[in-house]
């Protein structure tokens, strides 16, 4: 600062005491360090290592051969039809499950957002599948419901005079989607129902007085009100759907062929059965990128929510 400016400042401002030390304030840094370090160690460092492995030649069967290979793994990956198949499978699975759970969840939420005797019990029963372990879901559906001979659906088909259907063999992806949707529709239902119940009664009443019909009421009052909640449902579900594993592991093991091999299963197979660390790391990077495309929107939402929160 020039001497003149300093002099001018000195003239205008009363001699301010030197900036005081912060009062023995809260040890925020120490409070946040454990969580931060833990996430760094278990998430960020491994993520960096995945990136590193993805540009190395690294196969556990040939541990002596570990050198930098640039984009080779990625090239291999992009020429592997199974990878493309698994990518498409992943997207189909996520989109189908999203569409079903949100549509069904919304319908059920509207159904349960009315007062009728036994509502609490009915709702509790309806949301139970969400708490069921995915491996159990897979086994129960595969054996006791989908089984082409002894399964309940086969029996039902026979009773109706239809040919029994081997679900997991003939419609493997649809079967997986049904199981996952069965688990996650309750989640959408639960959250959307809470959203509906937070809708102020007077808004609905005002709309009715304004002459809105049932559909208009739904379209112009309920849906906009649910906007944020729907967003949360879609985003959280996509994160979980993107990483679906147990249901596939317990039923089709990715088959028949590669019909139900999604990205996580593809990586799992390449790493644990082909021992190809480099290639599966490259695929893992792909999975992270895919998840980020989805999460980008969620994080924007969370950040927006944060700002709204601090403005309150």
């Amino acid at each position: 600062m020039s001497p003149i400016a300093t002099a001018a400042l000195a003239k205008t401002a009363p001699p301010a005491p030197p900036r005081r030390r912060a009062r023995s304030g809260p040890p925020t840094r120490r409070l946040m360090a454990p969580a931060t370090l833990f996430l760094l160690a278990w998430m960020i460092v491994p993520l960096a290592m995945t990136l590193y492995y993805s540009v190395r030649h690294y196969n556990l069967m040939m541990p002596e051969l570990r050198n930098f290979v640039g984009a080779t793994n990625y090239k291999l990956l992009l020429t592997d039809p199974t990878f493309w198949h698994s990518l498409v499978n992943t997207l189909v699975l996520v989109m189908a499950c999203l569409a079903i759970t949100v549509a069904l969840g919304l319908g059920l939420a509207l159904l349960f957002n009315r007062t009728f005797p036994g509502r609490g019990v009915a709702r509790t029963l309806a949301i139970s599948p969400f708490f069921v372990m995915p491996v159990v879901t897979g086994l129960i559906w595969k054996n006791m419901l989908f089984h082409p001979v002894y399964g309940l659906l086969a029996w039902l088909a026979r009773e109706l005079g239809l040919a029994p259907f081997d679900w997991l063999a003939q419609q493997p992806m649809l079967s997986i989607v049904i199981m996952i949707a069965w688990e996650w529709t309750p989640f959408a239902l639960l959250i959307l129902l809470t959203g509906l119940q937070s809708l102020p009664e007077d808004q609905i009443e005002a709309a009715r007085l304004d002459g809105a019909g049932r559909w208009q009421e739904f379209r112009h009052i309920v849906v906009p009100h649910l906007g944020q909640v729907l967003y949360v449902v879609v985003m959280l579900e996509s994160i979980f759907f993107l990483t679906s594993f147990a249901e596939i592991y317990a039923t089709t093991s990715g088959g028949p062929g590669t019909a139900t091999t999604n990205l996580p299963y593809y990586i799992y197979q390449n790493a644990f059965f082909q021992y190809d660390i480099g290639l599966s790391s490259a695929a893992a990077v792909g999975a992270v990128v895919l998840a980020n495309v989805f999460s980008f929107f969620l994080i924007r939402f969370v950040a927006g929510n944060l700002n709204a929160g601090s403005a309150r």
Binding site: P14, A16, P17, R20, A22
Partner: peptide, 10 residues
Amino acid sequence: AGLEDLSAGS
């Protein structure tokens, strides 16, 4: 009250 720090003064 001490809920806000002073920027200057005492």
